[in-house]
Design a protein around this nucleic acid. Sequence first.
RNA 1: GCGCCUGUAGCUCAGUUGGAUAGAGCAGGGGACUUCUAAUCCUCAGGUCGGGGGUUCGAAUCCUCCCAGGCGCGCCA
Length: 588
Amino acid sequence: MHADHAPPDPLDRALGALAEALAPVAGSDPAIVRESLAPPPKHGHADIALAAHRFAKQAGTTPPELAARLAAAARELDFVAEAEAAGPFCNITWAAGRLAADVIEAVRVSRTQGGLVAGSEGEGATVVLDFSSPNAARKLAFHHLRGTVVGASLARLWEARGWSVVRLNFLGDWGHNIGQLLHKLSEIPAGDADHIDPSRLQQLYVEVNEEEAADPDRIKAASGEWLRRFEEQDPVAVRRWQLIVDSTTEALDATYARLGIRFDEYRGESNYVKTAVGVAEELVEAAVARVDPESGAVYVPETDGLQAVVLVNSRGISTYEGRDCAAAVDRHLSFRFDRSVYLTDVGQGGRFAAVFAALDRAGFEWAQALVHLGFGQMRLGGRKAKTRQGTAVPLDDVLDEAVARAETEIATREMDLDDPAETARIVGIGAVVFSQVRMRRTSDFDFDLDSAVAFRGETGPRIQYTHARIMSILRRADVGVEAALSACDASRLTDPLERDVVLAVAAVPGATRKAVETDDPSHLADAAVGLADAWGAYQTAGARERPDLRVLATDADLRRSRLGLAAATACGIRDIFGVLGVECPDRM
RNA sequence: GCGCCUGUAGCUCAGUUGGAUAGAGCAGGGGACUUCUAAUCCUCAGGUCGGGGGUUCGAAUCCUCCCAGGCGCGCCA
């Protein structure tokens, strides 16, 4: 299943071997047994369980009897510590020392293979990912946050799994708003027109909208006229348009940089305004689209559950959907993708489904590789965070606020840091980023800066803190991560609290696979929380009521074992946060 | 009107495709700093899984009907 050079996954191997051993007893296929293995409810003590109900009839016995037989078979395995029937369930506990040794070794090996999140599903394949999708002349706003952060995370995840990823930003650089600005720029003296400061552009945008509110007819006419001039490649219009786009991307890139994000491609919507008409004609020739005899508009009629799509309006101008079609063609020609992904809010799913289906029926065989991934709607204090001109919350403001709060928090502690401001930046931004990837991709959720930046509970900063505490221990021991992993004798890690940490580390590869399968980085966030929970309980116990669990034990062998576990945990957190886009300071 | 989505603790969310006594975090109560970083940890309390009916050994999960929200539905982007 896994490519040779992907790091080993001991838990996966153990589950596979267990399924192989139990399948004959259950009278079923190993793959089916494997799928049925599930963690028991919280109150149980076992690590993994198999419900015997579904196999009993086939095995010609009752569920409790079969569970007993399964337990007997499981006990024979050297990596199983105990197995027992509890009514119709067979509960299995892994042999702690054995699993720990495999897990630490897997982490050690993974250091040279791209980390615990590495994999090879995407080897040799190219995926184009369209995400963020801002509009010209507007700042990146709060409502762009989710798609931007999740998209960047997916891009890193796919790269870790071998894909060649094209990060593509589809800029809204055409339409009424652009027309307004082309017109408004008439007010700028020619001498200033080499460059427009982003904040100035923003200001012009607000002003022209105010003017339009006061005198709609005049501004709409002027805007339409400028848009037409731009389409005809009028030199003045083209130059103004370029100023707008340059100023916009300058501002956008500054904000993206704060989030550690860069794009490989900016493709503006305006590139497709004309080519979309040609693509629409192709769809008409393929009998997928029609020309409305009355209006002259080109549209794809409603078909089996898919909404109708207008490609060209009655004035002969392409619509957004028409441009989507043209852009899809362009992406195929430019990148020869194996998969072309559009990450937008879930509400646009219907539209994309209709567009993709139209391209497919028109005979573009690559249209099968077009997929829409939706993310849940963001709410701000229970209200819809909508784009309303001028009133949208700039993302930079949110980031500034998060960093400011981290600064305040840092000021209250005694830890002396080389660069408190830099730490505050990492913690504040990390808190915001983590809040976005924590939820399942498709869940709507209510964003509240206070809870995102609370720095306690299931937050980025708490996980960063866990990592920093581990690094602090390694510093005291004067040992590096690699050395600690190599020197570890994991068979000494037998305390239940240590076992929990081992299991949390062991869960990382599986969580990554799940994230890939579901195109959802939140499963990685879960694994990171699991690491922080397990390590936090262990380290705090060692520091308080359980001095026998101190990592820096006097017994040299034990100390080496625990340092190895510490290093493995730090690696797990770092590997995951690397994909999620959260930095991990060594001190905080 | 048609279609899709959502409804789980006071709040924000999980729930591994039908399995055991439905889980976390926050907020609330009670504890642990001479100790490897208290941005931590331990503990308690908190639920008719929106409601009714159905399917079966077994339902938060599948079917159906209601109720309450949200989103989309041929010339906006």
